[in-house]
Design a protein around this nucleic acid. Structure first.
Length: 605
RNA sequence: GGUCCCGUGGUGUAGCGGCCUAACAUGCCUCCCUGUCAAGGAGGAGAUCGGCAGUUCGAAUCUGCUCGGGAUCGCCA
């Protein structure tokens, strides 16, 4: 053993094995646990590689043993000694190093620690505020170390793979210009230009398109993006995305790159998780029809069925009214839930209402029913039973694919509402019925999104995705006649029901881009102020190009099996966008404000 | 901005109108202990129950407001 990792240690705690018995080693790390037997002291020493049991025995070194008595949790020490086999029967099979231990001859205390706020261990549940306030301690936990390493591996593979594919990484500025559409900007005052502000980028969108005009051809960046919007489990004010853009490509070229990259990452980082290949492809229309959402979780069935016409033939007023007003009646089958009691169905109704539904219609088919054909009145349970004849149920059930013992869940209303409610309800039922296989990653490309969405409140078209996406060439005519019908060359990558990223083929023509801005109601002034640089660039020879922005935090969270992205971010913020460790945001000095030409006006209480 | 859940020694929980001058586990401190690894044994310190106001003879326990955390709707091109 003649190696040296650093001046402080030549071996990592997690390394010693039987084969190293009799070697003289020096390790350094944190006191994980001490067990003091008086004349014999055991220390579990921890570094990032794992745990090693160190024994202080006065027979080998009284000095080290005496000093070891003072050791406490989380002290930082350096120990030299000999690797020895453990006494027979004293091995610890739970520890990779459990067959051996370090018989200490020298102990150096590198630093002491006050009593930690919580134990550095995976099995203690600690209040989130405390964890974040002491994030430096929280990150010592093996699980958090593992996540940090996982995240590193993912970004490393992105660099490697994209480099292999001849992408160039380019950094774009963090101080850019506010373009106040979409999310709220984080804003930075300028000292040099009184009254003027920079904004932090919501994404490097315009910059990467400019890089395409610059002839970079293949660009990527692990880019930080900022949005001043309310937080969620899967949303932080700053998040990281894999941003990439390619010239001379069509949709399939971009998808191929991302699909290969993501598949490779999943296979290498979480080999025990199954990933579907090739990724499923669904048009937006098909996804909405079958799942009621543009981010379908396809790990389970329970797909939606439309029964507007059949349901309208029943005596149920709700159904008749919705059908005649152009709404839809849709539902899905919860298999084996025909025996749900009042409490369970009430619960589901409540859930549906919380998603915006007026109500939830369910039809339960008793499992004693011999078949749907032989269905009798007694076999049916439903709040609308009075209005649903056996004949109507006999038509609805086969249409929806329900059999004896099943529960049909039906919602009526506007298309949008029905889809929202049913897709939420479908995910909820999958959770309740434990139909979700956590060892599966089901990737879906959802493509052919409409370019615009009609905003009922503002009475105008809004970009459904973003303003730079190219309309399908065959839909150009609709731009003037019926913008709502225009399909864009834009797509999302979805995994297990969450959006992992979105991409599109961009517009590279000034006139077309201007037409789109006009459709969503931007004035000439707004266009030149916010997008002038891009439009100008387009007049100097812009190649056709397209690309994607892919959420890194969500991807790592999915790989790690975490629900909240804050678990995969080293220093995240709380739901009120506060950092308990630094206590940011905070007041600044009056002098700073003065330098920035800023006066603070506090809100009235 | 709305709705819901949570807030008790360092940490995690119990208590949910008087039995609480607040319990348990763990951590912490002192002492004992040569084979432990959830070490063990003996002893000890430590919270007025997020804050404020109210109801009540009496509040950790009920009510209102407020602060903080979380989930979610709005929002997030």
């Amino acid at each position: 053993m003649n190696r040296k990792i650093t001046v402080y240690k030549d071996t990592n705690c997690g390394e010693p094995r039987e084969s190293m018995v009799d070697s003289q080693i020096t390790v350094a790390g944190w006191v994980h646990k001490r067990r003091d037997h008086g004349n014999l002291i055991f220390i579990d020493l921890r570094d990032r590689s794992g745990l090693l049991q160190v024994v202080f025995n006065p027979e080998f070194s009284t000095a080290a043993h005496d000093l070891a008595q003072s050791l406490r949790s989380e002290w930082v020490i350096q120990v030299t000694g000999k690797v020895v086999s453990r006494l027979s029967g004293a091995e610890n099979p739970d520890l990779p190093t459990g067959a051996v231990e370090l018989s200490a001859t020298d102990l150096v205390i590198l630093n002491r620690a006050i009593t930690p706020p919580f134990e550095v261990s995976d099995d203690v549940e600690v209040d989130l505020n405390t964890r974040l306030k002491y994030r430096f301690m929280d990150l010592r936990r093996p699980r958090m170390q593992e996540i940090l390493k996982l995240r590193h591996r993912v970004t490393h593979m992105m660099w490697d793979y994209l480099t292999e594919k001849e992408f160039t990484q380019v950094e774009t500025p963090i101080l850019i210009k506010s373009t106040p559409e979409g999310a709220r900007d984080y804003v930075v005052p300028s000292r040099v230009h009184p009254g003027d502000f920079y904004a932090l980028p919501q994404s490097p969108q315009q910059l990467k398109q400019l890089l395409m005009v610059s002839g970079v051809e293949r660009y990527f960046q692990i880019a930080r993006c900022f949005r001043d919007e309310d937080l969620r489990a899967d949303r932080q004010p700053e998040h990281t995305q894999l941003d990439l853009e390619m010239s001379f490509v069509h949709q399939d070229d971009v998808m191929a790159v991302v699909e290969e990259l993501y598949t490779r990452i999943v296979k290498e980082t979480v080999p025990d998780v199954a990933v579907n290949g090739p990724f499923v492809r669904l048009t937006y229309a098909e996804s909405m029809e079958r799942f009621g959402t543009d981010k379908p979780d396809i790990r389970f069935g329970m797909e939606l069925t439309t029964i507007t016409e059949i349901a309208a033939t029943s005596d149920a007023r709700v159904f008749q009214a919705v059908a005649s007003s152009g709404g839809s009646i849709r539902g899905f089958v919860a298999p084996g839930c025909g025996n749900y009691g009042r409490r369970q169905t009430d619960d589901l109704t409540e859930f549906a209402k919380s998603s915006g539904a007026q109500g939830l219609v369910f039809i339960a088919i008793d499992e004693s029913a011999p078949s749907i054909d032989a269905l009798e009145d007694d076999h049916i349970k439903s709040p609308l039973k009075k209005f649903l004849s056996v004949d109507v149920v006999k038509k609805i059930a086969p249409e929806m694919g329900a059999g004896p013992g099943d529960l049909m869940l039906i919602v009526a209303g506007t298309d949008k509402l029905v889809n929202t409610v049913l897709s939420n309800l479908r995910n909820e039922m999958a959770k309740r019925l434990e139909m979700v296989d956590r060892k599966v990653l089901a990737f879906v490309w959802v493509y052919d999104f409409p370019l615009f969405e009609w905003d009922e409140d503002l009475k105008k078209f809004e970009p459904a995705h973003h303003v730079f996406s190219s309309p399908k060439s065959e839909h150009m005519d609709y731009l003037d006649t019926d913008p709502g019908k225009v399909i864009g060359t834009l797509w999302d990558l979805v995994c297990n029901g969450s959006e992992m990223g979105s991409g599109s083929i961009r517009i590279h023509d000034k006139n077309l881009q201007t037409r789109l801005f006009n459709i969503i109601g931007y004035t000439e002034e707004q266009i030149s102020d916010r997008f002038g640089q891009l439009l100008t660039a387009f007049t100097y020879g812009a190649p056709p190009h397209g690309g994607m922005g892919l959420g890194l935090d969500r991807f790592v969270a999915i790989l790690a099996g975490e629900d909240a992205i804050r678990e995969v971010i080293a220093f995240p913020k709380t739901q009120s966008a506060f950092d308990p460790l630094f206590e940011a945001p905070s007041r600044i000095e009056d002098q700073q404000l003065e330098d920035l030409h800023i006066r603070v006006v506090m809100p009235k209480v």
